[in-house]
């Protein structure tokens, strides 16, 4: 009976979506805020990657908030999972291949992650993508050698706090200058050069470090969670 109701509901939903789809108008997709941004972004922010301009400049506050969501989720994750008991059973040690692979990959992942973060205003990528790679670099050894304390949770919480604070403080600096919060500062430089786009690369570095430390912390918490019986 329940499945029948569910199926009926889903069928109705499908019909509704089809009806809505019939009414969607595809003709005016060229007139939007994004195209307006494409027209002025190079001049206003100095970043060659316009998605970066949107993420860090035009919609910078959204990015700050999503960092805060990650921060909050990591904090709550730590709170919910709690500390593990000392005598709790551990996952078995990984094999030789994974251990060697983790050792080899660790420096490579660090370099790639940092590269992607630092070139976020020029090429596809940026703080989020690079940050995830950084987190993977720190998480891989944890998979290879369960129980290893590669990252001290206190250091992680310090780093993530400071990285987030850096983002906000850069925003506040603009206010001291009499501008609005998060207005890009510094010289915009030459379009396409590594050192260009003013404060955007610094913001992306803060984002990358924060995302990396949040995710690494969160994954470490999940890995540390006691194995279920």
């Amino acid at each position: 009976m329940r499945r029948f109701t569910a199926a009926l509901f889903l069928l109705g939903l499908g019909v509704m979506i089809a009806a809505i789809y019939q009414h969607i108008d595809f003709s005016n997709t060229a007139v939007n805020a994004g195209q307006a941004i494409n027209a002025v972004a190079a001049e206003e922010t100095g970043a060659a990657n316009f998605v970066t301009s949107v993420v860090l400049a035009y919609r910078g506050i959204d990015t700050l908030l999503e960092l805060t969501i990650l921060f909050t989720a990591a904090m709550i994750g730590g709170m919910v999972l709690g500390r593990r008991r000392v005598d709790a059973p551990r996952d078995p040690d990984a094999g030789f291949i994974l251990r060697t692979g983790a050792d080899l990959l660790f420096p490579l992942l660090l370099v790639v992650g940092l590269y992607i973060i630092l070139h976020g205003h020029l090429t596809p990528g940026g703080g989020f993508q690079g940050g995830v790679i950084l987190a993977a670099a720190f998480f891989l050894p944890l998979l290879a050698r369960p129980g290893i304390t590669l990252i001290d949770q206190r250091v992680v919480s310090l780093v993530e706090g400071l990285a987030g604070a850096t983002f906000i403080i850069i925003g506040l600096l603009a206010m001291f200058d009499g501008k609005e919060f998060l207005t890009p500062l510094l010289d915009k430089g030459e379009l396409g050069a590594l050192i260009s786009a003013g404060t955007l690369p610094i913001l992306y570095l803060a984002v990358g470090i924060k995302v990396g430390s949040e995710l690494a912390g969160l994954l470490a918490h999940l890995a540390e969670a006691e194995a279920l019986d």
């Binding site: 994004g34 195209q35 941004i37 993420v55 959204d62 995302v211």
Partner: peptide, 15 residues
């Protein structure tokens, strides 16, 4: 060029 706004929004939504 593609509209950068949805790309940025989706990045936010994914995170």
């Amino acid at each position: 060029m593609a509209d950068p706004v949805p790309q940025a929004l989706v990045l936010t939504a994914i995170v």
